[in-house]
Simulated assay, not measured.
Amino acid sequence: MTAPTLDRTATTLAGLVDHTLLAPDATPADVAAHVEAARRMGVLAVCVSPSMLPLADAEGVVVATVVGFPSGKHHSAVKAAEAALAASHGADEIDMVIDLGAAKAGRFDLVEADVAAVRAAAPGVLLKVIIESAALTDEQVVGACRAAESAGADYVKTSTGFHPAGGATEHAVRLMAETVGGRLGVKASGGIRTREQAERMVAAGATRLGLSGTAAVLAGEASEAGGY
């Protein structure tokens, strides 16, 4: 795909983007093309599945991967081991999925312990915590964000993009941003298919965007990709 010609606003947006490829059937050739597209578009980071690491040529872009993805229903020790391995394979950032059931049950102590295990396993890596906001009440969103912050996370993130409840909403982003109060970043991800949606997420408080249809979004076109 030819990279779009970026105006100033699109360039600014590109600097917030994790250009994401988490399709289970992605091949090494797909990932290589994805990284090259990210470089042409001037995005901040690429996010790929952990089995695709290390990346052969990611010069100029931040490398992110996922842990406990997409269900979050993994033992904390397994998530921690996955995070440590990803870090050893060159991951600069990790997006981990919480145990959503623990958050829905109000067991934020378990959410905090889960995040803390990953934090301890990869201390030098920027850690984003996916709370699956569309599946939570406002109270649960606040509790999950507070648990992530207490455990040492750097960002809270709305969604995996795989949950049937949906992805990012302006309301969730605003609530998350208010909860972390600028102490953590906020990543909006899941279902962002247009430039307008992306800009509205930023206006609501998002400091990072997870997009899979990045070129179309930056060009102001509708993307068919879900935006993980």
Rank of each mutant, 00 (worst) to 15 (best):
L85E: 15
H74R: 07
K128F: 02
E224P: 00
G220V: 02
A165Q: 00
E221Q: 14
L110P: 00
E149I: 03
G185N: 03
A23T: 10
P70D: 00
K73C: 05
I192W: 11
I131E: 03
A84K: 13
P4C: 07
Y155S: 11
G124Y: 03
T169G: 07
E139V: 15
Q197I: 03
A151D: 08
T20Q: 06
R174T: 12
D7A: 00
S150M: 13
G143Y: 11
H171L: 10
A188T: 13
A198R: 13
F162E: 02
G226E: 05
S150C: 09
A83V: 09
D7I: 00
H163P: 06
H19C: 10
V97L: 06
S51Y: 06
R8F: 01
G167Y: 01
G124F: 07
G227D: 07
G182C: 07
L21H: 04
F108S: 03
A33G: 14
S51T: 10
P4L: 08
S76W: 05
D7V: 00
L209N: 09
T65N: 14
L100G: 09
G220A: 05
A38I: 02
S49M: 05
S189K: 07
Q197Y: 05
A122Y: 03
G143N: 02
E199V: 14
G152C: 09
G90W: 13
H163T: 00
G143R: 11
R183P: 02
A80G: 08
V186K: 12
A188K: 10
M176V: 04
A87Y: 08
A102N: 04
H171I: 06
G213V: 07
S71K: 01
E59D: 15
A45V: 10
M41R: 06
V61I: 03
H75W: 10
G227L: 04
H34A: 10
P54Y: 01
G101M: 08
T9L: 08
R8E: 12
L209W: 10
